[in-house]
């Protein structure tokens, strides 16, 4: 009967690398556009399955906002295993393969008109950057905007241009901390929850958290102390999203698939799911 013409959800599309920058020792920041010239439409917080044939596929959160991307979109890849190592050897003009956008993204409409707090730990700044940029671009649609960012050390801080901008901007109350400083670092040293001592988190804030699994529990504890309601907390989860389309089972938490029901979940939904946090 031969080949089927119906769309095959596992066949990726080509994306051209418009810009590639090694932003830390392990992380590379790519700006991409679709090779066929098609407009890439997506929402902040959605994910991509990124691959190279012969190496494999990995899930990566989009790191740019559709409000300012001009047809391009960004991802940041950390060199961890076989696939990410191969992808991070690519340079400007190269091609990688993508499937997506996949997943639900951040609840932008729920955040609009409210005080918003984003808490990002480590590489968690990459997916949340899609939201941060969205808020900065559509600033009038949101009330107070606070960003808390924790990194392991100053060398691993990503998006240096953005950080510079946020530090000096009156559009965002930006607080940052590193686990371990260096000679040049004049900022705060400690864990991300220390930032709650100085940052004002109003009880009616809508809060988005993304970071290493261990971080969620401690940040949620601080948010509860600040009086933030559980249904105003949103978590951007990381799991082994192998297929990205709710089939392969690897990212399943109870009856939820992180790749299609998430990766962004409301805390009230997640806390019922024992394996979520």
């Amino acid at each position: 009967m031969g080949c089927h013409c119906e769309e095959n959800i596992f066949v990726p599309k080509e994306a051209k690398i418009v810009k590639a920058a090694q932003v830390t020792e392990r992380e590379k920041h790519f700006t991409l556009k679709m090779a066929d010239g098609a407009k890439f439409e997506y929402a902040p917080g959605q994910i991509l399955e990124v691959s190279l044939m012969g190496y494999g596929e990995i899930p990566i959160g989009l790191a740019s906002s559709p409000t300012s991307s001009n047809g391009t979109f960004d991802i940041v890849v950390r060199t961890v295993g076989r696939v990410s190592t191969a992808i991070n050897r690519l340079e400007e003009g190269g091609t990688m393969l993508i499937r997506g956008p996949l997943g639900n993204g951040f609840p932008i409409d729920e955040l609009k008109g409210h005080n918003v707090v984003v808490v990002a730990g480590g590489i968690g700044l990459c997916p949340t950057r899609s939201l941060i940029k969205y808020i900065m671009d559509e600033r009038a649609s949101f009330k107070e905007f606070t960003l808390l960012y924790g990194a392991r050390n100053p060398e691993e801080q990503m998006f240096q241009d953005d950080l510079k901008l946020w530090r000096g901007s009156s559009d965002v109350c930006f607080h940052e901390i590193v686990d371990k400083g260096n000679d040049k670092w004049k900022g705060k040293v400690g864990v991300i929850t220390n930032l709650f001592k100085e940052a004002t988190v109003k009880p009616d804030s809508k809060v988005v958290i993304c970071g290493p699994p261990i971080m969620f529990r401690f940040v949620i504890r601080e948010l509860k102390k600040a009086g933030v309601k559980e249904n105003n907390i949103f978590l951007d989860l990381e799991r082994r999203m192998k297929c990205g389309v709710g089939k392969c089972g690897h990212c399943q938490i109870n009856d939820k698939y992180v790749c299609i029901d998430g990766p962004v979940f409301n805390y009230t939904d997640l806390k019922q799911l024992e394996e979520a946090l």
């Binding site: 012969g54 494999g56 089972g249």
Partner: peptide, 18 residues
């Protein structure tokens, strides 16, 4: 119905299968 996805090269190191 769970599955894993793996890429494998053929011996020619040019072609292969996901």
């Amino acid at each position: 119905y769970c599955f894993d996805v793996q890429d494998n090269w053929n011996v020619d190191q040019v072609s292969g299968t996901r």
